[in-house]
Design a protein around this nucleic acid. Structure first.
Lengths: 65, 65
DNA sequence: CAGCAATGTCAGGTCTTCTTGACATTGTCA
DNA sequence: TGACAATGTCAAGAAGACCTGACATTGCTG
């Protein structure tokens, strides 16, 4: 599952730790998602989408769309 | 996480088993999602959204929108 | 009534997501 | 140079998502 988290974060000049705090997850969770080590849960994907004010589909891409 | 799976499925006259087959998951997985026992993974949410040709946000609702 | 489809549920197991705590590397800056 | 922020990574464990196989209930229909 590809995602644009790193870009969206960079646009806002947020560190992984800052983003993690806003999402209420650990810094390692953000890092693991950005580096493709795992996918977020659906509830976390919703929080990410809401934070960046974008549809989930415009942040994440499962490669079948 | 609320969802409209049951309604979307009923609109198409599909059984849980039929839907499960189309999504490539077990019947129990579909049942557990419909009955609110757990949330789908993000990849499965993508497959569901694609199958019904709807955005994820129009099928699932985490109650914070 | 008997048979069947659909649904809901349980148990036991596996893999993934997320946690805390820790450590190494890199780049910046006083 | 030393201190610090940011990032990446590891380990061990908790919780959630999924599996197979099984069984009970309901409603329909021959």
């Amino acid at each position: 599952m590809n995602n644009r988290l790193k870009v969206l974060r960079a646009e806002r000049n947020w560190s992984q730790a800052e983003l993690a705090e806003r999402l209420d997850v650990s810094r390692q969770a953000v890092n693991a998602i950005e580096t493709g080590k795992h996918d977020p849960s659906l509830p976390l994907a919703f929080r990410i989408a809401r934070l960046f004010a974008l549809p989930i589909e415009e942040i994440f891409d499962d490669g079948n769309g």
